[in-house]
Simulated assay, not measured.
Amino acid sequence: MNLSLQSHLILYPVTIRQDKKNYIIEDTFSGEFYEMPEICIDAISLINSGKLLREVERELTIKYSDEEVDIISFAEQLMEFGLVKEINGEAVLRSKEKQSPKGFTWISPRIGKLFFNKFMNKIYFVLLFLNILIVLFHPELFPNYRDIFIFDSMMINMITYMAVSLCLLLIHEFGHILAVRSHNLPTKLEVGHRLFFVVFETDMSTVWKLKPKQRNVLYFAGMAFEQVMIFIAFSLILFFSGGNSILTGILGIVIIDIFIKTVYQCCFYMKTDMYYILENVTGCYNLMENGKHYLSKWLPFIKKDATTEVFKGEEYIIRLYSLFYVSGMIITCLLCVFYFLPLAYYAYARTFSHLFDSVGNPYFWDAIAFLGQTVLMIGLFLYAWLKNRRDI
């Protein structure tokens, strides 16, 4: 179906919300969102008023005399988004399906507001401050990689850590769910996997219906619940000092797991909750894509992304984000040096020592099982890596 300046378009209904710098367009049918500058909003308004593309382009050229106006390219983009209903009276086939989540509507918004309101939002930041003070006054509570090893059996240590980490992950995601429901918006909990790990992710697509300040609360919600959990863990350890060693050990796992996850939130080369907060505060919603494109000039191992668009005034923010991007890589390396490598060395040094025990010793079989799990993990990693290489 050819487009020309003589074409007359009819668009599907959209909802337009003004954001910090540009506008957020919501496809009311599919639930998809797009960021557009003011000139595009004016173009949509003129198209909806029944004007031909030629007339739309002429009016936009007069109003935006300092910008290049190409209404044909914009109309083609609207077609790619599936927003064009008819061209010159001829229907345009639409293959989109509704993508808006509909889950967790059984949770009343009132319950969500019990956990996320002006008062509670301040409480979470107070807890964050208190947790920092607790560590400063009790430096022995600062997590150590050996906190994971509360049993002599490596397999039991691994199972315990994975169970605690999974529970904390669910608590984190439930924070997001309650925050979304506090605004009476639907969401869903998606279950996937990365290699052999189960991953839960809350669908946050509906947050674009909210104002930027409200979105920040939803992005922070998971970390807010983690601050509650780590404060409880600190308090119980201080209260039961010298008490139940297993309970203290499990609380130590809670602390180190949340600590590592919190540090990972600052690794801005991944789309973490903190990344989305940074994106939301700056109003630049393609920071990672634009940042990678900018860094690829100096770091050849970073792939260019030519599909993204830099809006006017975002250049400085993208350069600043690039520093955060590189800093995140450094933080990851530091985690490896101070936590993951010592942890792995400690675990395997103890495991290898039991390989020389007698076959009747249960720790010999514990070592065999732990090493067997390691071989399986490496095999799955190599399979995923090779499969990813073939798909490129």
Score class of each variant (00 low, 15 high):
348 Y>T: 03
242 G>F: 07
125 F>E: 12
319 R>S: 06
370 F>Y: 14
271 K>R: 15
334 L>W: 13
310 V>L: 15
367 A>W: 03
287 L>A: 03
175 G>A: 12
212 P>Q: 01
248 T>R: 05
96 K>R: 14
108 S>H: 12
359 V>L: 15
306 A>P: 10
314 E>V: 07
123 I>T: 03
271 K>E: 10
147 D>G: 02
61 T>Y: 05
45 S>H: 11
30 S>P: 01
370 F>A: 09
104 F>E: 00
286 N>I: 11
226 E>G: 09
251 L>A: 05
268 F>H: 02
135 V>W: 08
334 L>G: 08
192 G>M: 02
31 G>I: 02
332 T>D: 15
28 T>G: 02
252 G>F: 09
340 F>G: 11
201 E>P: 04
241 S>W: 14
194 R>N: 03
65 S>L: 03
134 I>K: 03
312 K>M: 09
200 F>P: 10
27 D>N: 04
360 G>V: 04
54 R>E: 14
310 V>C: 12
358 S>E: 12
279 E>P: 07
90 E>G: 08
367 A>Y: 00
248 T>C: 09
376 L>Y: 09
1 M>R: 08
390 R>W: 05
167 C>S: 14
202 T>A: 10
84 V>T: 02
45 S>A: 11
115 F>S: 07
365 W>L: 02
7 S>Y: 03
39 I>H: 00
248 T>P: 00
383 Y>C: 01
56 V>E: 00
170 L>K: 04
349 A>C: 06
392 I>R: 14
247 L>T: 07
58 R>S: 14
71 I>M: 10
32 E>D: 12
150 I>G: 00
306 A>E: 12
9 L>G: 01
70 D>N: 13
320 L>K: 11
204 M>T: 07
304 K>S: 13
35 E>R: 06
10 I>F: 05
209 K>I: 05
315 E>I: 07
145 Y>M: 00
321 Y>E: 12
180 V>N: 08
138 H>C: 11
252 G>H: 06
380 L>A: 10
313 G>H: 11
19 D>K: 12
310 V>Y: 08
123 I>V: 13
187 T>S: 02
227 Q>L: 03
150 I>C: 01
203 D>Y: 01
130 L>V: 15
278 L>C: 13
333 C>T: 03
120 M>G: 01
54 R>Y: 13
361 N>L: 04
37 P>Q: 03
279 E>I: 02
237 I>Y: 07
142 F>T: 10
333 C>R: 06
13 P>G: 05
247 L>K: 01
175 G>L: 01
132 I>L: 15
147 D>Y: 13
108 S>K: 03
